[in-house]
């Protein structure tokens, strides 16, 4: 086993996800089979090949430093579960 239940716990915590014990077992085994599958790539000879970070080969896509109109603050806050005083409102995060 490459992935233990503890590691699933840790990743879940980092991603702010809550799972039941059964789900954790299930995901540990699923993540394992994914990693085992990836091991197949290890059979290929990749010496001298640069690691790929992007599927496309283009580089240097830029925009000019020009200001265009933003959306209104009402629109910005439209999807927020809680907003007040033109701001997103969240539970207090410092004591």
């Amino acid at each position: 086993m490459k992935i233990t239940k503890e590691e699933v716990d840790k990743v879940a915590k980092l991603a702010r996800l809550g799972f039941t014990e059964e789900e954790k077992e299930k995901f540990a085994s699923q993540l394992n089979s994914i990693l085992v599958y990836f091991d197949n790539l290890g059979e290929l000879d990749t010496i001298g090949i640069e690691p790929t970070s992007h599927a496309s080969t283009i580089s240097n896509v830029f925009r000019d430093d020009k200001v265009e109109s933003s959306i209104s603050k009402e629109e910005s806050l439209l999807n927020a579960p809680d907003g007040k005083r033109d701001c997103f409102r969240v539970p207090r995060i410092i004591e």
């Binding site: 910005s76 007040k84 005083r85 033109d86 701001c87 997103f88 409102r89 969240v90 539970p91 207090r92 995060i93 410092i94």
Partner: peptide
């Protein structure tokens, strides 16, 4: 409301 923080993006 001291139980909240406000976010300006």
């Amino acid at each position: 409301d001291v139980s909240y923080s406000y976010v300006d993006l």
